[in-house]
Structures are given as C-alpha cells and as structure tokens.
Amino acid sequence: MNSTNKSWVTLSLLLLVIFIASWQLISMVLKNLPGPMPVAKTAYFFLSDPFYDNGPNDKGIGILALYSIGRLSVGFIAGSFVAIVLGVILGLNQTLYKAVNPYIQVLRAISPIAWMPLLLYSVQNSNATALLVVFMASVWPTLANTAFGVSNIKRDYISVSNILQIHPVSKVFRVILPGAGPTIVAGLRISMGSAWVAIVPAEALLGSLGLGYFVWNEWNNLSLTSVIFAILIIGLVGVLIDQLFNALARRLAYVD
C-alpha cells in the first residue's frame, strides 16, 4: 500500500515537471506566450501582498478571490436549497417527476452565461445578475440528482418508515435525505463545478470585482503573464472547493 502511494506521488510530480518543461519549450517557440519564469515572477508580485487595496478598480488577488468565493457561496447556497426542496418533491412523486424531467434536462443544457443578458435586462443590477448566474448554474445538476436519488431510495427503507408511522417531515430528514445523501452530494459537487466555471466569465462580462474582473483587467493591458497567473489561481481555488465536497461525500457515504 505504502509503495503504491509513493509511486503515484512520484508520477504526479514527474507529470508536473514534464508540463513545466514543455511549457517552457513552447514559450520559446511561440514568442507571444510567456514562459513559466515570467509567470512565476508575476505570481510572486501578486502573492507577496494579496490583500492590498488601491481603490475601487485595483485590489489584491486575495480580496478578489474572496469576492468571487462570496458570490459563489451566496448563489450556490440559494440555488442548492431550491434544488434540494424541488428535487425531494419530484423524487417522491413519480408522475410529476416524469412530467417535469424533460424540462429540467433542457434547462440544464443551457450555459448559465447565456442567461446573463436576459437577467441583466430584467434585474437591472450587475451584482444581482452575477449572483443569479451562479444560482442558475447551481440549480439543475443538484435538482436532477436529488430527484433521481430520492426516487431510487430502496423501497424497503420507505416501507419500514411507513410501518413505523414516522411523521412525514421527520421521514424526509431521517430517511429520504440521508438515503439520497450521496447522490445529492454528487449533484452538489457538479453544481459547484459549473457555478465556479460560470462565475469567471460572468464577472468579466459584468465588471463585478472578482477573479473574472482580474482576468479582464489584465487582458486589457495584454498582460498574458497575469492572465495565466489568474488561470492558475482559479484552478487552485476550484480544487480546494472540490476537496470540501470530497470530505462531505465521505461523511455521508453509507453501505446498504
């Protein structure tokens, strides 16, 4: 076990080295693409003082990341709440589920960014629009997964709870949600992924402070090193958030 553990770490590090080396090589051929060194320098510059504040249009990368994460949290929590409530209702009612499912699949296929102009036009506020884009990105995967998870809970569990005559509300919290828990968390994880993917272009298009704004502001200056640095930060934050869900999924897992 220990040796296999080590071997994946070694392989992973080796891949990183190969990636950086080939990046370096490509940047030497493509003159316009900054190599790893200039990006590292930029990263050092931004990370050495991540919370500076030079006015409304120039804030440290840490502050901008917090803006994005804050926006993500609000939109995601609201979206997930709606998705889980609707999902449980649909999951418990097969007819309704079958009737609504095609629409969910259609809505799910729409890029959250595609909603943006419509939302901006109707709510007339760019911050609220960014939140709604995250909301839209968060709802569908969780809704689909919750409905699926709830409708596929073992009949035995439901039957037992019926025999014991548990109150319907407590049935939801003690049988249905735990039963569908792992599927719901899997849905939340997909939702979080798509919300994080949506937030960067939403901020860039709306001019709302955040990592997306940073990308756009640096693109303004054709500063590709900063753009690459921002890409790395966006990826890293995404991984950290995903790790949270990983931990959550492990806690909610159960064996039939």
Binding site: G55, P56, L120, S126, A204, G207, N217
Partner: peptide, 16 residues
C-alpha cells in the same frame, strides 16, 4: 469613486 467598465454596452446598462 470612478469605476471601470469593460465596454460601452456595460456602461450604458450601468447608467440606465
């Protein structure tokens, strides 16, 4: 405060 916008459509929407 002066606030930076990404394009003319955006600044129109902000203003309106």
């Amino acid at each position: 405060k002066v606030v930076k916008a990404a394009g003319w459509a955006m600044i129109r929407d902000w203003a309106v």
